[in-house]
Design a protein around this nucleic acid. Structure first.
Lengths: 66, 66
DNA sequence: TCAATATGTCATATATATTTGACATAAAAG
DNA sequence: CTTTTATGTCAAATATATATGACATATTGA
């Protein structure tokens, strides 16, 4: 589970707007939010920047995942 | 530029040992250390756990990359 | 209640991460 | 000096992230 949806809503952005901001398709954002797949590091970095946060805030859980 | 090599050396691991610890090929570690490509988030998480650190420490630079 | 926008999902295509096997050189150990 | 281990790199194959177009339902707002 990642925290993209929370940070996106905090910025009042739609999935479409976020997708444009980071340069991917809307479906890509949707699938990532729903843990249907595994984004690349460079996309994670772009998401963190656009959402004014960092990698740990979006993707890190102290109690391990894969 | 990421900091995998530094953290790997701090743990006195070879590229091969690290690759086995996270379940990928040695070449994958080598290419990531040399910024030849763009690992998946799940691999980044595994690397952070094995190297006893977190995503920000390995991959985050305040002054943006891509 | 109706229209617009947002989200979830499917199927097909493409780009690229990752694997495997191999070889060369560098570095470390004997 | 010689042998082993570590690293960089290449080429071909495979797995999977991402794109594109489309459609259904949900949500929001007029």
């Amino acid at each position: 589970m990642n925290h993209i949806k929370e940070y996106r809503k905090a910025k009042k952005m739609s999935q479409y707007e976020l997708s444009q901001a980071v340069g991917v398709a809307r479906q890509t954002i949707n699938l990532i939010e729903n843990d249907k797949y595994n984004p690349s590091l460079s996309l994670c970095l772009k998401l963190a920047h656009v959402l004014d946060t960092d990698l740990n805030a979006l993707f890190w859980e102290e109690n391990n995942e894969n």
